[in-house]
Amino acid sequence: MASEPKTFTFEEVSKHAKISDCWVIIFGKVYNVTPFMEEHPGGSEVLLAATGKDATGDFEDTGHSLEAKDMMDKYYIGEVDQLTVPLTRAYTLSTPDKARSHSIIGSDPTQELMIKILKFLVPLLILGLVFTLRA
């Protein structure tokens, strides 16, 4: 008779965010990927970036092979208590013409606007400096 899987809180899982101790959450399951850090094709940085959050989206976006998905069983250590996982906010921003819109997950719309403005202004400031110094 198989025993019940261990259930971890999100906070417990989040504490394991080092190369020497790395746990990730994918599809509500907790995996101790510490032994896999050196072998991961994307490098240990990819796995470290997946800590402290639900990494299901990252895992799905990468398009892992069936072999990679089968390999996960080896690292499975339990489940995450879904009630302890922070909700991810989603915002929909649209352009003034409302023709295009996109969803930004977990971002602040004000920050996104500031980033867009800075991406426009910084190159202009650099050009201004270049022309000023040449004169």
Rank of each mutant, 00 (worst) to 15 (best):
A2Q: 14
S3N: 14
P5T: 01
P5E: 04
K6R: 15
F8D: 08
T9G: 09
E11R: 11
E12T: 07
E12Y: 08
V13L: 07
K18V: 06
K18F: 12
I19F: 11
D21W: 07
C22T: 08
I25V: 05
I25Y: 04
I26L: 05
G28D: 01
G28N: 03
V30P: 02
V30M: 01
V30H: 05
Y31I: 03
Y31Q: 04
Y31C: 00
N32S: 03
V33T: 03
T34L: 00
P35W: 01
P35Q: 01
F36V: 00
F36P: 02
M37D: 01
E38G: 05
E38D: 14
E39N: 09
H40F: 00
H40G: 02
P41W: 05
G42C: 02
G42M: 02
S44E: 10
S44C: 04
V46D: 03
V46N: 04
V46M: 06
L47T: 00
L48R: 00
A50F: 03
A55M: 04
T56G: 01
T56S: 06
G57R: 10
D58T: 03
D58N: 07
D58H: 01
F59N: 02
T62Q: 09
G63I: 00
G63P: 04
S65Q: 02
S65R: 03
A68E: 05
K69S: 10
K69C: 09
D70T: 09
D70Q: 14
M71C: 08
M71L: 13
K74P: 08
K74Q: 12
K74I: 07
D81K: 04
L83K: 15
P86S: 04
R89V: 13
A90F: 12
T92I: 14
T92Q: 11
L93F: 03
P96Y: 00
R100S: 13
S101G: 06
G106P: 09
D108H: 07
T110C: 07
E112W: 10
M114K: 15
I115A: 13
I115N: 10
I117K: 13
K119T: 09
F120Y: 14
P123M: 08
L125T: 11
L127Y: 13
L127E: 08
G128L: 13
L129Y: 13
V130F: 13
F131C: 14
L133S: 15
R134T: 13
R134V: 15
R134L: 15
